[in-house]
Design a protein around this nucleic acid. Sequence first.
RNA 1: GGGCGAUUAGCUCAGUUGGCUAGAGCGUCUGGUUUACACCCAGAAAGUCGCAGGUUCGAGUCCUGCAUCGCCCACCA
Length: 712
Amino acid sequence: MSDESSVPEELLRPYDHHSHERDLYQQWEETGCFSPDGSGDPYTIVMPPPNANGLLHAGHAFFVTLEDIMTRYARMRGKRTLWVPGADHAGFETQVVYEKHLSREGRSRFDLSRNDLYREILTFTEENRKHMEQQLRLLGASCDWSSARFTLDEDIREQVYRTFYQLNDDGLLYRDLRSVHWCPKHQTGFSDLELVHETRKDPFYYFQYGPFVIGTVRPETKFADKYIVVHPDDDRYAQYEHGQTFEVPWIEGTVTATLIKDEAGDPERGSGVMTITPWHAAIDWEIARRHNLSYEQIIDERGKLLPIAGEFAGRNAVEARSDIVAKLKEQGLLVRIDESYEHTVPTCYKCGRDIEPQLKKQWFVNMQPLAAPAIDAITNGDVSFVTERYRRIALHWLKQVQDWNISRQIAWGIPIPALVCNTCGHGVVSDEEGGTCPECSGVMEKDQDTFDTWFSSAQWPFLVLGYPDDPMYKERYPIDMMETGQDILFFWVIRMIVLGLYRTGKVPFRDVYLHGLVSDSKGVKMSKSKGNVVDPIDIANEYGTDALRMAYVVGIAPGENMPFSVDKVRGYKKFANKLWNMGRFVCGESEKVGDGQLAETDQAALTAWKDCLRDVTDDMECHRYHLAGEKLYHYTWHTFADTVIEESKAVFSDGSSDEQASRATLLLNVYAESLAALHPFMPFVTEALWKHIPEGSWKSSPLLIKQQWPSL
RNA sequence: GGGCGAUUAGCUCAGUUGGCUAGAGCGUCUGGUUUACACCCAGAAAGUCGCAGGUUCGAGUCCUGCAUCGCCCACCA
C-alpha cells in the first residue's frame, strides 16, 4: 500500500461487530430511517406478531432476517416502505406458559380469579414485549416502531368485536351444542387444528350386547349406551327393524336398547354393529341428533367417571378401563379381544393427553360460505404463493374446511361479547349485561369465554393499518407481502385471507412467502429436552448479526427447513471481516480516483460486476434471496477480492497514473455498489463501511440504509 | 385412508424456464508470515445427482413406475 495514512484508523483493526451494531441501529432509529419516506410507491409488510410470552427463538430470527431483507431491499428501490411490528397476546399459548410460572411458585391458575389471572398475565406480556422489541433491534429489524401494535390494543379489540357482530348479523355465527375437542388437563375446547392425531395400537374389545356383538376401544364410555346402530343395507341385520327394542344385560344391570339404522354404520368396521355415546364422540352425536335420541354425560371435564358409572364413579375413565373390562368379562359379556387393532387418537397439541370429546355450547363460525371467496382469490391469483405447492395445500384445506370453534375456556384473551344463560347455555351476541334467557327463563350472564387467539390475529393486516378509516389503510391495503412460517398456513394465513375478504372485500396481501422450520444442524427439531436449542441472540452476540443473517438465508430455498449450523455462521463472520479488509485496501487507494474514465480492462471488470448485479436484482425481485446472497458472496470474495484486487496490486505498483486512476475508480465504484447490494443481507458491516466510502457518483446518501439500489 | 415433499461430495444444503466440464459452507489433504486480510492466500482429493424405464440433439432438471425417509390432512365403534 502506497499511503497508510489515507486509511481510516478504524479500518486498520479487524472488524468488531460489538463496536458497531448497537450504535448503527440507534442511529438508524433516531434519524427516522425506518419510517416511510420519499415519493415512491408504497410497500407494506406486516410482521407476524411474536407471542408475548417469552424471548425470541431461532424461528423468529429466521423470519426477521427474511422480512428485513425484503424491507431494506424495497426501501433501496425507492419504495415508501413500511414494516409493521407487533406482538400477539397469544391467548392459550401464553396462559399455558404463565401457568408454568405459577406452578414454579407453587401456585395454580385455579387459585386466582379470572380478573386477577388476566391482570397478572397482562403484566407478564408487557415485560416480554419490551425484551422482544430489544431483541428485534439486535437482529437489525428495520421496522417502523411508531406503528407497533399489540393484539389487545383497544381499537383492535373494537374491530374484532365488529367482525364478531357482523358474522352474527350475516348468519355466519352460531352457538350450538356440539361435540367439542376438550382437553381434560387444560380445561378448554379447541378447534380441529389444535389436535395432533396419534396412531396407536390399542386392544379392541368385542362385547355381547343382547343379540349383537359390538366392538369398542373405549368400554369406559359405554355405561349408558342404549342405542344400537347398524347400516340400513347390512343384510346380516335385515331381520331387525329400525326402532326395535331389546332388553340387554349390561354393565350396571339390564338396559332397554333401541336399534337405529343409519348410514353412519360401517359394516366393514368391527362387527358392523356399534352402540353410541353421543356425549363423548362426534359421530355418535351426529347420529343421535339425526334420530333425536337422548344423551348423557359419562365422563366429567377432568376425565373422571360420573355417578352413572356406578362403582367406577370418580375414577379416571381411562385408568378404570381394565377394571371395567374385567367386570364385563365376569358377567360373561366379553366375547374376545383384538390386540392388534390400530387407530388414530386425537391428542392435545400442547400436553399430548387424549382429547375427550364433550358436548358443549360454543360459538362457531360457519366456514363454508366464507371459504368460497378465498378459494376464488387463491385460484385466480389475487394472492400468490411464493412456493407454488403451498397454494395447492391451501386450496385443498379450504375445500374441506370445518366450522371453526372460536370459544376458549381461558381467562387470557379477548372476552367474547355475548350473554350466556346460566341454566341452558343458550347464548346471545351482546355487549350488554343481564336479562332473562329467551329459551328457558334462566339468568343471562356475561360469557366467560374468550376468543381463540387466531380469531383476532386472522384480522391482523387490516387491523394494524387502521381499518376502515385510517389513510394508511386506504393507501396500503392489501399489503404487499405476508412472510411467515409454513406451519401456520392453516391457522393464520388462510384465515387471514378468509376474514380479510369478509371484512374488507379485498385479499389482505398480494404475496405469501412461507419459510420452513428451523432445526438443529442435523435436521432434528430443536427442543429443550433434547438440549439442541440455539439462542439466536447468543449467536448474534458471538459472531455478529450479519453473520447470523447470512447463515439464515444463503443456501436455504424458499419454504425449505433450515438446519441451523454454527459453523455456517462462523463462515459468514469471516465474510464480514473479509469485506472489512477489502475496505482497508480499497479506501487506501481512494485518493488515486481520477475523472471517472475507465481503461478498457477496468470497463470489462465493471461489466462483469453489472452482470452479477442484474442477476442478483432479478433474484431479489423473485424472492430468491438464497441465490442473491450466495452470488454476492461469491462475487465479492472470489471475483472482486481474489481477482480484481489482486490484479490491482500490479497496477498500483507499476501502472501509469492514468491506469492507477482508472483502477482506483473501478475499485471504489464496484466496492460501493457491492456494499449497497449486500446491505439488505448484512446491514451492519456494510453500513459501518459505508462511512468510509468517499463522496462520488457511487454515493448519494450518507447512510447506506437510505442509499438507492445500484443502477443496473 | 387421502395428499405433499425429499433422496446431489464425509456432514448440512444450493442448483430459478432442460445446455453442468454438477456448486457452496463446514470438514479433509498439500504448500505458503506474497505490504487489505492467517477471520488469509494458492492448490488438491472427494459425487455413475436413490433405483429402473421413457421423452429429447442434450436430463440433477421433464414423464412413468419402484424403494426409502419425512411432513400434512382425515369423525377415537
